[in-house]
Amino acid sequence: MKRVLALLLFISIFSSSELVKAENPEEPVLTTEAAILMDMQSGAVLYGKNEEAKMYPASLTKIATAIYAMETANMDDQVTVTDEIEKIDGTRVYLNPGEQVTLRKLIQGMLINSGNDAALAIAIHLDGSKDKYTKSINDFLESRIGVKDTHFVNPHGLYDDNHYTTAKDMGLILNYAMKNPEFREIFGTKEMEWDGESWDTTIHSHHRMLKGEIPYEAVTGGKTGFVDQSKQTLATTAENGKIKLTAILLKSEFKREIYEDTKKLFEFGFANFKSVQVRKGEQFKSGKLKYKAGEDLYMTEPIQQSKRVIDEGGTLRVENGSGKTIQTVELKPLIEKKPEVKKTSEKPEQSGILSLNALFGFGLLIMASAMWVLNRKQKKHRRFRSR
């Protein structure tokens, strides 16, 4: 009997610990200094480590340059490369001053091969100079995307003490850019033929997971970065049919470690979360209060246990089994229309007709009475004369 009781106690303790583990999935331990994992569609933050700390992005800057160019210019624009590109350091696609290249091709060379000369050529084409580009890109990122802790002074990410961002802001920028079909296509390109005036070759993505050097089938796009001050930086997107994920990692000492950390984040996200689409007008209820979604949106929910809580202000909180908030969504109050009472024109018209009929009948009665009185007077008058 004692052995049976001990066995039952062990099973009970083991089951309870497994339940707690399911409700509170263990977050990955990373060596990278700052990181964030986000649901690409809902924007929910699924994991964060120093995600709001000021960091140097290196070539992840080119993600911002690309989406800024795509939304403010024509991809088929012919760009004339200026002399400034000869002074650029780092990775290049070897443009020549005076060379004519389409904006699309420059963006491809910038994102796929990380060409700093292509990035500078884009900035000068868009705004006339690097200084004007600086003001324009920061205005764009703040007003269009909503970043709060980012300031860029160049289009390529070469080190400058005043050129910084955060993992969270870079996640917001990449999520925004991934809504653009042309950006998604280029961001996920592994290789392309490059035919330039001085460089005829095949350019390849530098992202090891994207091009298959580090196998991970779920990866859909990626961008690498490195300068001495930023160390290794990495932006990667992945999806598994249930959720689309964005991972930003900033300042890792070694390439091997930053890819291992990225893989840890994706495995954590895929194992524990799913994305749910909510259509505009979909209703939610909290007690006697009713709310609706004001627009089409996505919500991130835990796979194991999920709870939706709505406060009186209409804020919907998605919580996991332990009560941790995964995402908040602002809803609109549902105002139910009262049944309309149809007002027909029959009654007023009928009442008008009845009034007219009554008046006409009353007039006829007066006329008949008057004729009757007149007729009696005439009879009296005739009888009086006959006497």
Rank of each mutant, 00 (worst) to 15 (best):
V147R: 13
I326L: 09
I243K: 01
S355L: 15
A123W: 13
E18R: 12
K211T: 01
S198F: 02
M110A: 07
E239N: 02
K148V: 11
Q283V: 14
F284N: 06
S129Y: 13
L210E: 00
L316R: 05
L354F: 14
I186T: 08
L8V: 07
K168S: 11
G115K: 00
T166W: 06
A73H: 13
V93I: 10
K135P: 08
L106P: 02
G196R: 04
L95T: 00
T328P: 11
T166F: 04
D89S: 15
E349M: 15
S286Q: 08
K288V: 10
V20K: 12
F10P: 06
L174R: 04
G269H: 05
E336H: 07
M75T: 00
T91R: 07
S252H: 07
V373T: 11
Q304Y: 14
N74V: 02
E18Y: 14
S143V: 13
Q378D: 14
N320F: 09
L46K: 07
V101N: 02
H163N: 08
L37K: 04
E217Y: 01
T165C: 05
T150V: 11
T82D: 02
R385S: 15
P97A: 00
S42M: 04
K337D: 08
V309A: 02
T82Q: 06
G188N: 04
T201S: 03
D311A: 03
L9K: 07
Y68V: 01
T262F: 02
I173R: 02
D160Q: 10
T237W: 06
T328V: 11
L30A: 05
K343F: 10
W372D: 03
I248Y: 04
S252T: 02
E99A: 01
G98C: 05
I85Y: 02
P155V: 07
A35D: 03
E193S: 12
S59P: 13
E213N: 09
D39R: 11
S306A: 15
I310R: 08
K251M: 05
F360Y: 07
K307L: 10
L7C: 08
G109Y: 04
L289D: 08
K347Y: 14
I258Q: 02
L46C: 09
K130W: 11
Y298E: 05
K244A: 04
E18M: 09
E33P: 10
